[in-house]
């Protein structure tokens, strides 16, 4: 499947035009909002996963913590994707040729599938019934995948 025409088209859209033409809008509504949402996303991932790893809030039931953290995870993810699409549209052709962009998209896709198809269904019931090693593996994988998404995201800007 040839994706380049899609990226070329993205730059010609209204969204791409705004981001390309107005640096201030790109930097504040794109980059800064993206980073604020990253804070909330990171917080929700760490609050939930460090709880599952028994590092923090050992005196609060992990079911409550993961449930509440997931609520904010979803909100942050929506903001991150919206601002991310906006930023990518403005520099779409450069993104197409950037290795870190594709690394980030792969990690993001894996992260989303992992959270919604595997982690959430697993943690739905009582956590006491689950094997503690599996819980810890899931929590570690979640932290790793979301920090990788963030780090590869920053490296998009350093390369190409």
């Amino acid at each position: 499947m040839e994706l380049l025409p899609f990226f070329e088209w993205a730059e010609t859209t209204f969204l791409g035009y705004i981001g390309k033409t107005y640096g201030g809008v790109y930097a504040t509504f794109g980059q800064s909002l993206h980073l604020m949402a990253l804070a909330v996303l990171g917080g929700s991932v760490l609050v939930a996963d460090l709880r599952l790893l028994n590092v923090i809030m050992k005196d609060v039931p992990s079911e409550i913590v993961t449930e509440q953290a997931h609520k904010w995870f979803r909100i942050a993810l929506v903001v991150i994707i919206c601002t991310g699409v906006f930023m990518a549209a403005a520099v779409a052709q450069r993104m197409y040729h950037n290795d870190f962009f594709w690394a980030k998209m792969s990690a993001l896709l894996v992260g989303i599938i992992f959270v919604f198809a595997i982690k959430r269904p697993l943690l739905k019931g009582s956590h006491a019934d689950l094997n503690p090693i599996v819980i810890k593996m899931v929590a570690s994988a979640s932290i790793l995948v979301w920090f990788s998404v963030a780090a590869t995201g920053r490296w998009i800007g350093f390369s190409g």
Binding site: V110, F114, I118, N131, V134, M137, V138, A141, S142, L144
Partner: peptide, 11 residues
Amino acid sequence: EKIAAVAAGAI
């Protein structure tokens, strides 16, 4: 749990 363990391990 098995699916989660395999997926987490792979990640």
